[in-house]
């Protein structure tokens, strides 16, 4: 019996009788992180990292049965040991190590290897088999250090503020928004947020993440917003909601902004390349450090990564999952739009 297998409802561990990030309702679901394509409604019980419990409740409702565990803490299901390790993707994101009789798999969910002040750093975990994402698995994707990107954002905001213009920055409301807030220079001006961002800011603050003061952009008085930064989900671009900001410049922060065509398609003034997913060198170093010989690739540029790994000595294959990322920028949009205002 294999330790992990793909079933119609998701990745299943027969020995422990649980699923990891299932896309249909199951009895027991272990969740890597709180983004909607990984934490879906309908399961009887959920297990996730302590820091993700509140995020999951905002997604799944307050009735959902959610159990939290600490990073590094081991829980047993039918002789299969389950341990969560930081994935560095967003607050509470975890790689899930599944181990039985000395043989182990790690399901990494979404991850990045570069440091992020708003969540625990990615931790390489030795294993026999590794399940990886491939959102940005092409060598054209190589991130600049986040400090450089924050400096670009600050420069854009400062230039707008000097002209009494508001700066509307579109970012995924869970994770990306908070990472940006922790990185910008709050001395430039006041910071306002969309409701879906503000709600998650509160969750982050309660988990002890330091964020600058933010205010829910409630008032329709245009003068309030002159020179301010407004952080909102990408779906708000072009909506009536942003018109309240009067004269403003728009920008989006996403890994897809690396490519000019994507930048232009989004019809914003600026595109900042900032991602919570690993870039090409990040994916390869993470895979190497696991020491795993078998690699399953779940979503994104599956084919190139699988081929590259197979040509370089790994035993790799792609899995047909329902995790999204092929067009993740669009899914970010639809996902955040589901959050009620």
């Amino acid at each position: 019996m294999s330790l992990l297998e793909l079933r119609p409802s998701g990745l299943f561990c027969p020995g422990g009788d649980f699923y990891i990030d299932p896309w249909k309702g199951v009895d027991r679901a272990i969740i890597t992180h709180g983004h909607a394509d990984h934490a879906r409604v309908g399961s009887k019980s959920y297990l996730c990292c302590n820091d993700a419990v509140e995020i999951l409740h905002t997604r799944l409702g307050h009735q959902a049965s959610i159990q939290g565990v600490a990073y590094g803490e081991t829980v047993s299901f039918g002789g299969v040991n389950v341990t969560l390790y930081p994935a560095g993707h967003i607050l509470g994101s975890a790689q899930i190590k599944v181990e039985s009789r000395g043989y182990s798999w790690v399901v990494s969910g979404d991850y990045k290897v570069e440091p992020d002040a708003t969540c625990a750093a990615f931790q390489p975990v030795r294993c026999n088999g590794f399940v990886t994402e491939a959102t940005f698995a092409l060598p054209i994707y190589r991130w600049r250090p986040s400090g450089e990107v924050f400096a670009q954002v600050n420069e854009w905001w400062r230039a707008n503020a000097a002209e009494k213009r508001a700066s509307v920055l579109y970012a995924y409301s869970l994770g990306k928004a908070q990472r940006l807030l922790s990185g910008v220079d709050a001395d430039i001006g006041p910071i306002y947020t969309h409701g879906s961002v503000e709600r998650l800011n509160e969750v982050y603050r309660r988990a002890g993440v330091a964020l600058p003061k933010t205010t829910y952009a409630l008032t329709a008085d245009i003068a309030t917003y002159a020179g301010s930064l407004i952080v909102a989900p990408p779906g708000m671009n072009g909506s009536s909601w942003v018109r309240r900001f009067g004269d403003f410049s728009t920008a989006i922060a996403s890994g897809w902004m690396q490519v000019r065509g994507h930048r232009r398609r989004r019809a914003v003034d600026r595109g900042f390349t900032l991602s919570d997913h690993a870039d090409w060198p990040g994916l390869l170093s993470a895979i190497r450090e696991t020491g795993a010989e078998t690699i399953w690739v779940t979503h994104g540029s599956i084919d190139p990564l699988v081929r590259w790994l197979n040509e370089n000595g790994w035993d790799a294959k792609g899995l047909d999952t329902q995790f999204t990322s092929d067009e993740a920028d669009q899914n970010e949009t639809s996902e955040t739009e589901q959050v009620p205002e």
Binding site: L138, P139, Q258, R260, G261, S301, P304
Partner: peptide, 21 residues
């Protein structure tokens, strides 16, 4: 390898940009 450059080109849609990246 050459095939991986082609994958990148398919995704970027412009050779000059692909090479620059």
């Amino acid at each position: 390898p050459a095939w991986l450059l082609e994958e990148c080109y398919e995704s970027v849609g412009d050779l000059a940009e692909t090479a620059a990246l």
